[in-house]
Design a binder for these strands. Structure first.
Lengths: 218, 218
DNA sequence: ACTCGGGGTTACCGCAAGTAACATGCACGG
DNA sequence: CCGTGCATGTTACTTGCGGTAACCCCGAGT
């Protein structure tokens, strides 16, 4: 029958797509983001043109991969963020979740922050990449928006809350990201300490701290 | 004489190098970080091998370019950071300096955050890039360390100040970066407002804010 | 006169993205 | 039972880029 046939093909194509993504995942996690399409195709036991039939171009494949991992990470974060606990607890839990994730699978993390390049001049279609303009990983943007939404839903900071929430969302995510990236490279302290330090920063300890003796101008 | 001759050659080579960097700068600023070595060479009025004689490989050229701009930006930031004013003033001035810089020359900014890819497996020399492992821009690291040093010099937060200063340095820089990146893309508000919002965040308004009515668990 | 070294060029290699054209297997309608 | 789509797969190619080898030219020093 026509419908079942088309449905079968649909699911079959979907399964295939998923298999290909799994293979691509293995290769990217093993070889880093420079994995060639040939390598990925070989890992999947097929050849290049099939990948192109399924994903259009390399950017498409990488975007699909990124969406998978991003969704997974965002789900964990949302859980930590929405837990029924006090605010400081929730903040620390979220930080810890993120840091634990990047600590457990740094390869995934590194990949997510570099999905594609492509930043050609606007209006110039010579670059085959996809997201002209934005360069930093979409993961950061998505996390920022997510956090902004939670802040806006749960916090009351008077007028302009919405705007403030978005600024804070992206700012906090960036803080988490940069500190995590640095920490992952140098490992200067255990994770809990990093979490506590960052939470302290958000809790205003920077403003409260005293000037050091002999400081100029104060 | 030998010394003056060698000195002449030195300065001549340096001048050449600087000219090439200027040309590269123009191209990168015009075409984005994907500028090909051929394009850069053409802009400089010469051919590829000369670029390679001067900079080794593309990573070397890009690194040299990045150092130039990074140094310039860091100098402005250090000025704002070391100004003789109250802490909040200094923080706002620093944020504003950074945001003004990326607003004035977004192309430079975008380039600085993407100097090169290259993240091959450790110990594998197959990748010709340079900084294996680190992926995010060195600019962020340098700003983080810079800020950490200033914090450590001027702030007194009891024992563990040094560690805390580094965490905060990288964290604050990351906050600034991510918020700036998002703001640059969407322009949701004037710059001063962004500056104020971020400073407020650092000043603990997140912790002080009240819960919204009907929030779960609290 | 000659050679030596710095600045320059052409022509090439290897490799990866992306594509065109050809092969194969399998369900359908006659 | 035979062709006819059609999805799936392959080989073989083009294009463009990073990087290099070999050669060239010209001015300075002996």
């Amino acid at each position: 029958m026509n419908t079942t046939q088309r449905a079968d093909q649909q699911t079959s194509a979907d399964r295939r797509r998923r298999e290909l993504l799994e293979a691509a995942d293995r290769v990217v996690l093993r070889d880093g983001p420079h994995a060639s399409m040939n390598a990925i195709a070989a890992e999947a036991g097929i050849t290049k043109p099939i990948l192109y039939r399924h994903f259009g171009d390399k950017g498409g494949l990488y975007a699909a991969l990124a969406v998978r991992h991003t969704d997974a990470l965002l789900a964990s974060l949302r859980a930590a963020l929405d837990a029924p606990a006090e605010r400081r607890q929730r903040v620390e839990a979220t930080l810890d979740t993120y840091l634990a994730a990047i600590e457990a699978r740094p390869q995934v993390y590194r990949f997510l922050m570099h999905p594609a390049e492509s930043a050609g001049a606007p209006g110039d279609p010579s670059e085959p990449g996809f997201d002209v303009g934005r360069h930093s990983a979409p993961l950061l943007r998505r996390m920022g928006e997510e956090l902004a939404q939670v802040i806006e839903e749960r916090l009351d900071v008077g007028p302009g809350t919405q705007q403030l929430a978005r600024v804070w969302g992206h700012g906090i995510v960036g803080m988490m990201h940069a500190a995590g990236d640095w920490w992952l490279g140098e490992r200067p302290c255990p994770r809990e300490e990093l979490v506590r330090s960052l939470a302290d920063l958000l809790w205003g300890r920077l403003a409260e701290a005293g000037d050091k003796a002999g400081g100029p101008g104060f």
